[in-house]
């Protein structure tokens, strides 16, 4: 099959448009999260997304409409636990993660058990993405990217040296809360691309890949975004051609890029 024929299918076009935007946003946010040692926040919030989706399906509501506010509140809960209650970041993420899963299982059980819809959110199905979901993904992804661009200096400053940023008058608490909410929204959007189970892969893998070769923070964000985009397109193409699950294929391509970056870094370090 030719590449252009592959692109002629409507569901492929929708998958590529929405997936590209979400994967780039994930990668850019992932750079900040990994450097702040919050890599597992994607896992924690995606588990809460499971709870939100289960609640929405039980109440016959639109999953995104329930999940986004629920997960955003959970992300602020993580922030509150770490900053005010002195709970370690990984422990706070663990709390939200386990509560999210438990809540989801309870909701699923009370509404008659796991059904096909819930499974599709667990493992994702980017090829079934609707026009409305493409529009929502485009608007939200553009919004998240715009916020990151506008607050780039502040985000870099907080990520590198939070105390210096605070001393310089950066509204650290407000920017941290903003970053958490942006992460929450992005995680909810990502469930359709790779599924709840693999969401954190899109946040972590491209950024760790970028760190192997990047020469600067801005550079790392750009490289992570490009790797993530390339992995998304390659993964969707491979999944269509070889009849593989798209989410898993995208993650495996990202993992291949990471492996490749280790090799590139090895040779870069050997240069005199």
């Amino acid at each position: 099959m030719e590449f252009f024929e592959f692109l002629s299918y409507g569901f492929i076009k929708r998958a590529l448009v929405a997936g590209s935007l979400i994967s780039v946003v994930c990668a850019v946010l992932g750079v900040v999260l990994v450097l702040r040692r919050l890599s597992m926040i994607g896992d924690g919030l995606s588990h809460m997304t499971f709870g939100g989706v289960a609640l929405a399906l039980a109440l016959n509501l639109y999953p995104l409409a329930v999940s986004i506010p629920l997960v955003a509140l959970s992300s602020l809960g993580i922030l509150r636990m770490t900053e005010r209650a002195g709970v370690f970041g990984d422990a706070a993420i663990g709390v939200v993660s386990s509560v999210g899963i438990a809540f989801g299982v309870l909701m699923a059980s009370m509404s008659g058990g796991f059904n096909v819809d819930l499974f599709s959110y667990l493992f994702g199905n980017i090829l079934s993405i609707s026009r409305v979901e493409v529009a929502i993904s485009a608007i939200i992804s553009a919004g998240v990217l715009a916020v990151i661009i506008v607050y780039y200096d502040e985000i870099f400053s907080i990520t590198f040296d939070e105390e210096f940023a605070r001393a310089s008058g950066v509204p650290v608490d407000r920017i941290n809360a903003l970053l958490m909410v942006l992460t929450a929204i992005t995680v909810v959007l990502t469930m359709k691309v790779v599924g709840i189970m693999l969401t954190s892969a899109l946040l972590i893998l491209p950024s760790v890949t970028a760190f192997q070769v990047a020469r600067g923070f801005r550079n790392a964000m750009i490289i992570a975004g490009l790797f993530s985009l390339l992995a998304l397109v390659t993964g969707v193409f491979a999944s269509f051609l070889l009849n593989l699950p798209a989410g898993a294929a995208i993650v495996m391509v990202n993992a291949f890029f990471l492996l490749l970056s280790f090799v590139v870094r090895h040779f870069m370090n050997r240069k005199p």
Binding site: F156, D161, A165, S168, G169, A210, A214, G216, F217, R218
Partner: peptide, 13 residues
């Protein structure tokens, strides 16, 4: 992954 120039630019925030 931050360059020296990026670190110094933090002083201008």
């Amino acid at each position: 992954p931050s360059t020296v120039a990026e670190v110094v630019s933090q002083g201008l925030i």
